[in-house]
Computed example of a mutant assay.
Amino acid sequence: MYWPVGETAQFVRQYMLLAGTPPGNYRVYASIFDVSTLQPARVLAPAMAGNKGRFEIATLTVARPAAPPDVTGESGLLPSPATLAAGLKLLAFVPDRSSAMPGEQMAVGLLWKSDQPLAADVPISISLAGTELAFTTQPTPGFPTSAWLPGDVWRGRYLVRLPANIPAGAHAWQVASNGAAITLPDTLRIELPERRYEPTATANQTALQFGTDVELAGFTLQPAQPAAGSQLQLQLEWRALKTPPAELAVFVHVVAPDGTIIAQHDAVPANWARPTTGWLPGEYVSDTHALQLPASASGSYQVLVGLVDRATEQRLPVTGGTADAERALLTTITIQP
């Protein structure tokens, strides 16, 4: 369905806060995205520039509850609470998935209970056995344990980026604090992608470098003489010089002589299946993009490609034959009316 120009629409949803959500002020954001590419629409309002494809709609103040929540029946409850520091017990472990691939970002939730006042902020470490994944944080980041009261039950949530070189197999989660540690019954199964260290044959070889970590080794564009209203198929052959520290998205533009973008496709490489944070040095990754040409198009157009940091929306600089500082010119096509 399409919204007629000038028409308004109302979107109403009701959300329940999870038991144990720490008190504090939370910003509520929304975004609009393309269902075919999952790419968020860019926010044009100047006051919201730099909000990474989202716009703020409210500030929510969460208050301390009158009594600790009843967590009976909560998902991820341990067979029995685990004491990790004096007065600090781990009640539940709630990961957002049981299998993943290298480079993916996932969320891990822990449910805590205090038995006594915690005089100092207690650090915890979370790790994945048999891998390089390990980090130190607080039980509830932003709400220090020194503010907890005896009997409190609080939930911590942590974003985890899986290393590119993480080995395949089932790995156990571990949580530790002040010398005490527990190996949790939950495991994360790592499934490795098929990795290639030789390029796939493409019609055009290139040596375009994006930032310091990624090179475009070649591309194939079909058909060579597209008609107005048809679809272009662009195959890109990426090569990792190093593992990119940030997750990057590819954007492809078909641009008219006056600079107007008549067709565009944005996506994480390989149809969202190969995040760049999971690439290993020397690896090649094939990446296909479909671009729908408008029926009114006719004449000469440039095909440009670039990479953008998904977290900051900063485009990577291009070297080796650019159309501008942030986009590389692949070819010029003539669209038949």
Rank of each mutant, 00 (worst) to 15 (best):
A86I: 12
L44K: 05
D324I: 09
G229S: 06
D287W: 01
Q10A: 09
M1C: 08
I57Q: 06
A82L: 10
R274L: 02
D186Q: 07
P294A: 06
P139T: 01
L44P: 05
S99Q: 13
A246R: 14
L216Q: 14
G321N: 09
E191P: 00
L293V: 03
F93S: 02
A100N: 10
T83E: 15
A270W: 04
P244Q: 12
L241P: 04
W173C: 03
S99T: 07
A273V: 01
T137K: 07
Q205N: 05
P317T: 10
K113C: 05
P269V: 13
A164W: 04
E7V: 04
A297V: 05
Q231F: 06
F55T: 13
M48S: 15
A129I: 08
Q264G: 08
I182H: 15
R327E: 10
L77E: 02
V12D: 14
L149A: 13
R310A: 12
A129M: 12
L44S: 07
R195E: 13
T260C: 14
A82Q: 15
D70V: 01
A129R: 11
R327L: 15
A92T: 00
T8S: 13
V250H: 04
A228S: 12
A201V: 15
Y15L: 14
I126E: 04
T136R: 13
E7T: 04
A249F: 01
A9F: 14
L90P: 00
W154T: 01
A240Y: 03
A170S: 14
E7S: 09
L88T: 03
A170P: 01
T72I: 04
V250G: 04
T83G: 14
P317N: 14
A267Q: 05
M1Y: 12
W279K: 09
A217T: 15
L44Y: 05
V255E: 08
P144W: 02
W173I: 01
A297G: 11
A227I: 09
T277A: 14
G229A: 07
R239C: 08
R310L: 12
Q205V: 04
A129C: 05
V71H: 01
T202I: 04
V12M: 13
T59R: 13
D121A: 10
P244D: 11
L159F: 11
Q209H: 11
A67C: 04
F93L: 00
H265C: 13
T131N: 02
E198A: 15
D258I: 11
W279S: 07
A134L: 15
A256F: 13
S98V: 06
P95R: 10
G320E: 07
G76S: 03
L38R: 07
E313R: 13
P281G: 07
Q264W: 09
G299M: 04
R155N: 00
P102G: 08
I126H: 02
Q116H: 07
V122C: 02
G156M: 00
E247I: 06
Q314D: 13
S80Q: 15
G142S: 10
